Amino acid sequence: MSDDHVYLTLAEGHEDDTRWAYGTGFEDPLHGVDTTVPEGVDAGALAADCVALADDALVSAQRLAEWVTRAPELEEEVALANIGLDLLGQARLLYSRAGQADGTGRDEDAYAYFRDADDFRNVRLAELPGGDFAFAVVRLLVLSSWRLAHFRRLEAHPDPVLAAVAAKGVKELTYHRQYAAEWCVRLGDGTDESHRRMRAALDEVAPYLGELHSAYDVRDEVADDLRQVTEAAGLPLPVYRPLPGSGRAGEHTEHLAPLLTELQGIARAHPEATW
């Protein structure tokens, strides 16, 4: 199976090939959406869900930003930066919704810049160091497949704001998954060295898959995506070896705190500044 075939298979049902970065587009996904928390929706649970999803996106975006000036080609550098912008745009909307829902009125900057690592609720796979390009695309494939499956379900969420954010995100995450799938097949079915690195990347990701499935019940969808890509690339499916702990419970690796120090440094040094 060629990488083009995988790309088209995963794109089925999403023929709109818009790849404009989330944070730079001209369409407001919340235009005309009622921001009142609907009756019957647990506002605290809604806020917690939004924060967790936003933390996943923010931390992933920061890791993708590390590839600027480091990607194998300029085109891939731009692509990864735009994917990071997509995720950053999702994080901004989700943080804002959390501040509305929990009644604190906190804005996106308060959530992103003025919480410590123990307060973050992202999954641990997102925070692992960048590694080589093979690891970057494997992680992107897994996280985008997982997030896409969950966002598809959130399109029917009773909160209209979260549903609107999910509907917008589905289009972007479909592209993220396709981009990662193309590279996984290209590298897995490439040279001996690229194949070796892809196998190593799958082994490195495998222990964190259990945490993803514990967070949202989308195991079947993610497994189908991984099966398609690994078969096309001549790679083995990653073997689940779950690690104890959960980022959703604030239990993180030693890598998150340094990442946040870099991300939050300027904002904390100038807490009253506006940009």
Rank of each mutant, 00 (worst) to 15 (best):
G265H: 02
L235C: 00
V137G: 08
R124S: 04
V51F: 03
G131L: 10
E251W: 00
D28N: 15
L154G: 03
H14K: 14
R147I: 05
H176W: 04
A11P: 11
G131E: 08
D4N: 03
N82S: 13
A52G: 02
L256F: 05
P72F: 05
L235N: 00
A71I: 07
P271V: 01
F151D: 15
P258V: 08
P72N: 13
G103H: 08
G84V: 03
E75C: 11
E77G: 14
V123W: 06
H5L: 11
V138I: 12
V170S: 09
S96M: 13
L128F: 06
D220R: 14
R19S: 08
D16G: 11
E182W: 06
H157I: 04
A273G: 09
T69M: 14
V185D: 00
P160M: 02
W67M: 14
V218F: 01
A163Y: 02
C50Q: 11
R199F: 02
Q178G: 03
V138D: 14
L148F: 04
D86T: 04
Y7T: 09
M198V: 05
P271N: 07
G169F: 02
A54F: 00
D56R: 01
G23M: 13
P38E: 02
A136N: 08
Q62E: 14
L209E: 11
V78I: 12
G234H: 00
E193D: 15
F135H: 12
A232I: 00
E66P: 07
N82G: 11
L256T: 08
E73Y: 07
A43T: 06
A110Y: 05
L209A: 04
D224L: 08
G131Q: 08
M1R: 09
G23Q: 12
G89R: 14
H14E: 13
D4M: 00
E172N: 10
H31P: 09
A233D: 01
A126C: 14
Y95D: 09
V205S: 02
P158I: 05
A11K: 13
L10K: 08
L141E: 11
H213K: 01
V170H: 08
R177G: 02
R63W: 03
D192L: 10
L53T: 03
A257F: 04
G250W: 00
Q90K: 14
G25K: 15
